[in-house]
Amino acid sequence: MTSIDDRIKTALEQDTKEIDALLASEGGLPDMISASFKGGLRRWMFLVWPLTLIVTGFMVWSIYNFFTAGESYIYWGFCSVGLMMMQIALKQWSWMEMNRAFTAREIKRLELVIAGLSAKLGKNS
Results as ranks from 00 to 15, higher is better:
Lys9Leu: 12
Ile33Tyr: 06
Thr52Leu: 08
Val113Glu: 14
Asn124Pro: 00
Glu97Arg: 04
Arg42Leu: 09
Ile54Met: 03
Glu13Gln: 10
Ser25Gln: 05
Met84Lys: 00
Ile19Tyr: 07
Met45Leu: 12
Ile33Val: 14
Ala101Thr: 03
Gln87Trp: 03
Ser80Ile: 01
Arg43Trp: 10
Ile54Lys: 02
Met59Phe: 04
Ser62His: 00
Arg109Phe: 13
Glu111Asn: 09
Phe58Ile: 04
Met86Glu: 01
Leu112Asn: 15
Val81Leu: 04
Gly82His: 00
Ser34Gln: 15
Met1Ser: 13
Glu111Asp: 14
Gly116Gln: 15
Ile63Met: 03
Val113Met: 12
Gln92Phe: 11
Ser36Gly: 06
Pro30Gly: 05
Asn99Val: 11
Asp20Met: 07
Trp61Phe: 07
Trp44Val: 12
Gly122Asp: 13
Thr2Lys: 05
Thr2Ala: 08
Ser34Thr: 09
Gly116Thr: 15
Val60Phe: 00
Leu29Val: 12
Gly39Leu: 07
Asp6Lys: 13
Phe67Arg: 05
Phe67Gly: 06
Trp44Cys: 09
Arg100Met: 02
Asp6Leu: 14
Arg7His: 15
Tyr75Pro: 00
Arg100Gln: 07
Leu47Trp: 07
Lys17Asn: 10
Ala119Cys: 13
Ile88Thr: 10
Met86Leu: 11
Ile4Asn: 15
Leu29Ala: 08
Arg105Thr: 12
Val55Ile: 04
Ser94Leu: 13
Gly57Lys: 01
Phe46Gly: 10
Glu111Gly: 08
Asp31Trp: 01
Ser94Tyr: 12
Trp76Ser: 02
Met59Gln: 05
